[in-house]
């Protein structure tokens, strides 16, 4: 299980290139990856100038570990990677990445979907968007909370 919480930018392609042979050596026949990107805000004056992600050092790593552990106990998985950035980001930059591996694709697909749903509303990250009009914290969506009920 590879859990990373970092302010540094990352290259999703490079990470996947490292993850894939590692998963193959562990016996995987399928690798799924998800990359989350900072979307621009076309409706705001001048668009999104930056997004700042705050997190809870200590709890964040524990929560991500716990989420990955839950996924590994529900599905038959090989290696799992979760990387999430914090600090200042600009539009089009990758925010986070999840990669899962399994012998057959269904487990890896389901686990990646599960990890994303849990990450959204159970990992202590908060996003703040800055535009020429001012700054605002991104509000949690009810649909994110509802998504968790799929897995109960």
């Amino acid at each position: 299980m590879d859990i990373r919480v970092q302010d540094a930018a990352f290259d999703p392609g490079a990470l996947l290139s490292q993850f894939t042979p590692h998963a193959a050596r562990a016996g995987a026949g399928a690798v799924i990856s998800f990359t989350g990107l900072v979307r621009d805000l076309p409706g705001a004056t001048g668009g999104l100038s930056r997004m700042v992600i705050e997190h809870y050092p200590g709890m964040t790593e524990k929560a991500l570990h716990d989420i990955a552990q839950q996924a590994s106990s529900r599905w038959s998985l090989g290696p799992v990677l979760i990387l999430h950035r914090f600090g200042a980001l600009t539009p089009e930059q990758p925010i986070m990445m999840v990669a899962t591996a399994s012998a057959h694709r269904a487990d890896a697909f389901l686990a990646a979907d599960f990890l994303m749903d849990y990450l959204k509303s159970r990992a202590p990250f908060w996003k703040k968007e800055f535009t020429a009009d001012g700054a605002a914290w991104v509000a949690a969506k009810d649909s994110d909370e509802d998504a968790l009920s799929r897995w109960r």
Partner: peptide, 23 residues
Amino acid sequence: LSDFDAPLGGVREVAFFPPMTGG
């Protein structure tokens, strides 16, 4: 993550925050 009725005996750290928006 906990509830507002959680007991605080022996607790070292309590944190308050809005609903999380990761991902």
